[in-house]
Simulated scan of single mutants.
Amino acid sequence: MKVNLFGNKRVWLITAMIILLAGCNQTTENVEENDKIRVVSTNTIIANLTDEIGGENITNISLLKAGTDPHVYEPVPQDSIELEKADLILYNGYNLEPNIIKLINSSGVTGQSLAVAEQVKPLDFEYEGQKKPDPHVWGNVQNTIIMVESIRDKLIEIDPENEAIFQQNSEQFIAELKELDSWIKNQIATIPVNQRQLITSHDAFQYYASAYGLEIPGTLIGISTEEQPSAQTVKNLVEIIRNTGVKAIFAETTINPTLINTVAQEAGVNIAEGKLYSDSLGVKGGEADTYIKMLTTNTNSIVTALGKSE
């Protein structure tokens, strides 16, 4: 049998070149990926803001997944690994994610960190006789603009080569946020003044209400979802609802709705059809998978439920 050695050599050479080129491409991709600063965001809201600014020029990991409550989240071993690998850790602060903050302080973190919400002057709430800062600052879009500027500045500090990109992305995003802020004000203004009362599962909408002209007569639980409402608390909220004549009360996506449903039944009031997103964005591809879509969805739900004619 005649063997074509030259042909075999050609096949071998071509195969070797393909393998070599593939290896080069893979190495190039790895180098490019390694050149990006590695950011860890502790919750979905901060992760989205950071993605809008950094885009493809950063690697951004969100520790919490959509629908996860940061107040009660218990870290897993992988979280420690991600924090230790990070060039920058962005967390909310004001004790929104207490167990993650403890982990950041106790693990072998070598990168920089920034408490993003703590760049905003907080509204206070009273707990056990002491005033504490409310962590839900993003309810006011003007506060979110401050958060975006803080994230942008920190990214530029760590990665000055991409300053122009971070500046451009943040400017475009801030313009969209300003439009959102105006739109919310106009939408809430369509609700009759005597019906602008917001009652929710937990006290996460103080900033939103203050910025856009709503009142919060009461909530089922306080700032943190760790709290367990007593029978007296439930009774008091039922009385508030009856006395104020609110048209509807709201469940939230990250909180079991059983108790707020009980309150609605006892008070003889409707639960709004749309649940509110408070401490987390919605699932990817859903109605609230970005910060802007979350505030838009919440506003639409509030206007629909409270703005109905008598």
Rank of each mutant, 00 (worst) to 15 (best):
V3M: 10
N4S: 14
N8T: 05
R10I: 15
R10S: 08
R10K: 14
V11Y: 10
A16V: 11
M17N: 00
G23V: 02
C24Y: 04
C24P: 00
C24F: 09
T28H: 06
E29H: 07
V31C: 02
T42C: 11
N43A: 02
T44H: 03
L49C: 04
E52C: 04
I53Y: 06
I53F: 08
G55K: 03
E56C: 01
E56M: 02
N57T: 05
I58F: 09
N60Y: 07
S62C: 14
A66V: 11
G67T: 12
T68G: 01
P75Q: 03
V76E: 14
D79K: 01
S80F: 03
K85R: 14
D87Q: 02
D87E: 08
L88D: 05
I89M: 01
N92C: 11
N92I: 14
G93K: 03
Y94W: 06
Y94R: 10
I100M: 04
I104V: 12
I104A: 00
S107P: 00
T110W: 00
G111D: 05
L114P: 09
V116H: 00
A117F: 12
Q119R: 07
D124A: 13
E128I: 06
Q130F: 05
K132S: 13
K132D: 13
P133D: 11
P133M: 13
H136N: 11
N143H: 05
N143S: 05
I145C: 06
L155K: 01
L155P: 05
P160M: 14
E161I: 12
N162P: 04
Q168H: 12
S170E: 13
P192F: 01
N194E: 15
Q197A: 13
I199N: 06
F205E: 06
L214A: 09
E215F: 03
T219F: 02
T219N: 14
T219L: 06
L220Q: 07
L220V: 10
I221H: 02
I221D: 13
G222T: 06
I223A: 15
I223E: 15
T225P: 11
Q228W: 00
P229H: 04
V238Y: 11
I240N: 08
R242I: 10
T244P: 01
T244W: 01
V246G: 08
T253Y: 02
T254V: 15
T254L: 10
I255C: 03
T258L: 13
T258C: 01
L259H: 00
V263L: 14
A264Y: 12
V269L: 08
A272F: 06
K275F: 13
G282F: 07
V283C: 00
K284C: 00
D289I: 08
T296R: 11
T296S: 12
N298V: 04
I302K: 06
A305R: 13
K308C: 04
